[in-house]
Design a protein around this nucleic acid. Structure first.
Length: 717
DNA sequence: ACTACGAGACTTTTT
DNA sequence: GTCTCGTAGT
């Protein structure tokens, strides 16, 4: 007698869901019901009595995915998912480290710092070591540290081959020391610490290995080395790892995702089961055919071909615009028409490769009075006013947090400037004290000591006043006592920041409301710590939902996992998409292609691909040719649209348009040329006439150069 | 100690 | 075009 939760699954989905206790890889194509399979399997395991909710570990990458999984699960089964171990890698690590902080060598109230805070900590560290930030850019040091942590390598284990590498390794070691002193943990550290804790502590390891009989992973293709090692460790010899992913949608290699994990998983776990979910429930045939044809050109795929029971549907529309403005105007016009036909604006997406492209599109939409919503940008807990407020709270919770100290010691301004801080930092370093201790012990003399002492008193007063208050009231008190609220009230230009601070109080109240149900007996101080963790681990929505029907604007990355009736993929030009910076290595080129694959498979019914021959980028006009991806799609699936409906490839040399000079009569923008010294290149700009005429050439070897035509020995190629 | 101006950068991003 | 960072000026 099949259970109702299994009804409606196709044979492959059913097989995946009802697999016995064994490790398995589910290759789930776009729109193949991946999340459904994952959640239904958990529900099925529990319902059939194979495991209790207690024995499940379900890991995702984003909080959104974790929440959705929990929500779907509680809709399927009458269970409370709150106590279950469903969460992000980082969230679950946090949970483990809080429970075993002593064994992990962490203070009970350790704070989590985000990448911004981490970068600030590194800058501070380098400054203290008198390091030339030209030679060792903080961003690069951060990259080095995180890269090593994600490979499971501590500073002591780094194999440095040159002076530069040895220096970076020193910084890595010093950074970890600094974090330990301050009681802060960065994102990568959460994972590495947990991994070390479990590898070192046999009792703990066996406890969790026994407990988590079933480990389920979402978006497995996005895991990095450390996350994979973490999974392997938790699963142990007898555990079953059920990994769901799609190698064709791996678009995060640039931030450490190891595409090799899928193959390694297959080998390490001796998989005899790889289930492919290839039936797509989202898109019409032409769209899937295009996606399949494109992705086939990548090498080293595990292999998969999407199909649909639906018809072919409409052809894919391709639009060639002369300028980015024209491209935007075309999109506006099409959006209007479709909206008129009854397609909701929110069911249409406007995608682009990089955020910089959104502005011109926004401009056109704004002028057309079409409502739109841009995803991306600053998130709630990343805003500076929120960071300031949280830093006061962090300092109250954990006085030795130098990062928090420095963020607020002079904000709002209270006469503690760079000079004073330098002295304070020197004194603290000399005596191995935190900045707080140094300030509290009045190591300074003169006027600076007085202002520092005043700050110490301020924080101590806040700490005392907050003790025992509900969280929201604590925050309200801090906002007033610190002068933050007054500071933002005083400036008209920053009224929105004040609003955000008020929103922070609301968020805290809501947070306590949600928490309160479960953990009724938790002491007040712990609520603050939990809230700070929440703020660090979950930066909040990118933008508050406007509620109204609005066109969705976002990068292709941000669109992963979403679907729309109509998708406009804009800016399909060489150099933009695929992006210049990714073209050097085959890996990068293939990732760009996967990105294009993700873009195409977002569309249910209609797909527009557009590009512009000229585009304003970085304040300069760039001339581009059609993206290679357009020629990689089967021509019979494409339909040129728009005023000209002209063929777009191969790119004909364009004669100069309005306002463009035509020096010497022989040189055109877009023309390929050869220079005796610089080699092959393409003309991207012209200027002046007669003997003054100059052309700008983008050389494949030498980069961008302005050349005076009178002297340069330029020849057509 | 704070503010203002200019030089240079600038793919994608979650935790 | 726009944001960030560092330095110079008040």
């Amino acid at each position: 007698m099949p259970s109702p939760i299994l009804s409606g699954l196709n044979p492959e989905q059913l097989e995946a869901v009802t697999l016995p206790h064994q490790s398995a890889l589910i290759l789930a194509g776009a729109g193949s019901g991946k999340t459904r399979v994952l959640t239904t399997r958990i529900a099925h395991l529990i319902q059939s009595g194979q495991v209790s909710p207690h024995g499940i570990l379900a890991v995702t990458f984003t909080n959104k995915a974790a929440k959705e999984m929990a929500a779907r699960l509680s809709a399927m089964l009458p269970i409370n998912t709150r106590g279950m171990w469903i969460g992000t890698f980082h969230g679950l690590c946090n949970r483990l480290l809080r429970a075993h902080h002593a064994e992990a060598g962490l203070p009970a109230q350790f704070q989590i710092i985000d990448s911004q805070d981490q970068l600030a900590a590194i800058k501070r560290l380098l400054k203290g070591l008198n390091v030339d930030s030209e030679k060792y850019p903080p961003k690069q040091v951060q990259h080095f540290i995180n890269g090593n942590k994600e490979a499971g390598i501590r500073a002591q284990q780094v194999e440095a081959h040159d002076t530069y590498g040895r220096r970076l390794t020193e910084f890595y070691a010093a950074y970890d020391d600094q974090c330990n002193r301050e009681g802060v943990v960065d994102f990568a550290e959460l994972l590495l610490r947990t991994h070390e804790l479990l590898s070192r502590n046999q009792l703990l390891r066996e406890h969790y290995q026994e407990r988590f009989n079933h480990v389920l992973v979402d978006e497995f293709q996005d895991t990095n080395r450390l996350q994979y090692a973490w999974l392997k460790l938790l699963a142990g010899q007898r555990g079953a790892v059920f990994a769901v992913g799609d190698d064709d949608q791996s678009i995060y290699a640039f931030r450490g995702a190891n595409t090799g994990n899928m193959r390694e998983f297959e080998r390490d776990f001796h998989l005899d089961k790889i289930i492919r979910l290839e039936q797509n429930y989202r898109s019409h045939g032409n769209i899937l055919d295009a996606a399949n044809a494109l992705i086939k050109q990548n090498s080293g795929r595990l292999g998969k071909n999407l199909w649909t029971a639906e018809g072919a549907g409409e052809p894919i529309r391709v639009f060639q615009a002369a300028t980015d403005q024209e491209e935007a105007a075309f999109i506006v016009e099409q959006v209007r028409a479709l909206h008129g036909e009854g397609v909701a604006l929110s069911d249409m997406a406007l995608l682009y490769r990089s955020n910089a492209q959104s502005r011109i599109l926004e401009h056109a939409l704004f002028n057309a009075a079409l409502s739109y919503r841009v995803y991306g940008g600053l998130r709630f807990f990343e805003r500076q006013e929120i960071k300031h407020a949280l830093a006061y709270l962090r300092l109250i919770a954990s006085l030795h947090d130098d990062g928090a100290f420095l963020r607020v010691v002079n904000f709002p301004p209270r006469g503690i400037g760079g000079r004073t801080l330098e002295q304070l930092q020197a004194a603290a370093a000399a005596q191995q004290l935190s900045l707080w201790q140094a300030a509290a012990q009045r190591v300074l003399g003169g006027r600076p000591a007085a202002s520092a002492a005043a700050f110490v008193e301020l924080i101590e007063a806040m700490r005392a006043a907050c003790a025992g208050l509900p969280l929201a009231e604590q925050i309200e008190h801090v906002l007033e006592a610190s002068g933050l609220a007054a500071h933002y009230r005083a400036s008209k230009a920053e009224a929105d920041r004040l609003e955000n601070l008020e929103e922070l109080v609301n968020a805290a109240a809501a947070f306590v409301g949600e928490q309160g149900v479960e953990e009724e007996a938790s002491p007040e101080q712990d609520v603050l710590a939990t809230f700070l963790t929440h703020a660090a681990l979950e930066a909040g929505e990118h933008q508050a939902a406007s509620g109204s029907d609005a066109l969705q604007l976002m990068t292709v990355h941000a669109a992963k996992g979403l679907e729309f009736h109509t998708v406009f993929m804009s800016g399909l030009e060489e150099g933009l998409f695929p992006h210049d910076n990714s073209l050097n290595e085959a890996e990068g080129r293939e990732e760009e292609r996967r990105l294009m694959y993700v873009a195409i498979t977002r569309a249910r019914r209609r797909l527009y691909l557009s590009f512009a021959q000229s585009r304003m980028l970085h304040g300069q006009v760039r001339y581009g040719i059609a993206s290679r991806f357009l020629s990689e799609l089967p021509a019979e699936l494409l339909m040129p649209v728009g005023a000209a409906a002209a063929p777009y490839a191969p790119q004909p040399a364009r004669s100069p348009g309005r306002g463009e000079t035509r020096p010497g009569g022989a040189w055109n923008i877009g023309q390929n040329v050869v220079h005796p010294k610089f080699g092959a290149g393409v003309i991207v700009n012209c200027e002046g006439r007669g003997t003054d005429a100059r052309v700008q050439v983008n050389f494949s070897q030498g980069g961008l150069k302005w050349l005076a035509l009178e002297y340069a020995k330029l020849a057509p190629a």
